[in-house]
């Protein structure tokens, strides 16, 4: 074995991590070669120096700190993330709540309920307007025609009148208007 090869294997030789055959060859070489013997001694000194480093004691409370960390680690990441920013998250949530509900209420907004008869009223008023402008026409005004498909399948209660849904738009409109006339 030449110096180069021995040098590469010297640390492994010191650690007894070479084959018995390699070990024998390296030992023979080191006994004869001053340079390799010097390197061998130096590397052994380094190993001894590292092995002589004293053991460091665990910091006090290490295990109980670990147990706390493990408990935290069990929570889902989103909760851990939220906990990290707890005050910020609450402040943000409150802000959003105030902006969506509190602020409009404070400005006097009312909760609006949809009026089920609004389109019927519109239908009637449109029909009356059309009849006034064209008293002799037999057809329906375009606004009414457009609205009818939407209204006609909806049973509507106008006070004590129940307006049935009927098949043709014309009849339906007439019935609506009729009911209107009957009522008012």
């Amino acid at each position: 074995m030449n110096c180069q090869k021995v040098d590469n294997l010297l640390s492994a030789f010191i650690d007894r991590e070479v084959s018995p055959e390699e070990s024998r060859e390296i030992r023979l070489h080191v006994e004869e070669c001053d340079l390799c013997r010097q390197t061998y001694l130096e590397l052994s000194q380094v190993k001894d120096a590292l092995a002589s480093l004293g053991e460091i004691e665990l910091p006090p409370g290490f295990h109980s700190h670990l147990l706390d960390q493990l408990k935290q680690a069990e929570e889902p990441w989103i909760m851990r993330w939220l906990q990290q920013f707890k005050p910020l998250v609450f402040a943000g949530a409150l802000g959003v709540l105030f902006a969506t509900i509190g602020l409009p209420l404070a400005q006097g907004a009312k909760v609006v309920q949809p009026d089920p008869l609004s389109d019927l009223r519109f239908l009637i008023s449109e029909h009356q307007r059309f009849q006034q402008s064209e008293p002799f026409s037999n057809s329906l005004p375009p606004t009414v025609t457009n609205l009818l498909p939407e209204v006609r399948y909806r049973p509507v209660h106008v006070d004590d009148f129940f307006i049935r849904t009927v098949s043709t738009e014309h009849n339906y409109a007439q019935e609506v208007v009729l009911s209107h006339h009957l009522r008012y």
């Binding site: 010297l10 640390s11 590397l43 380094v46």
Partner: peptide, 11 residues
Amino acid sequence: RSRIHRGRKAL
């Protein structure tokens, strides 16, 4: 093997 060897030499 080579990391340990080079490491010790540098040390």
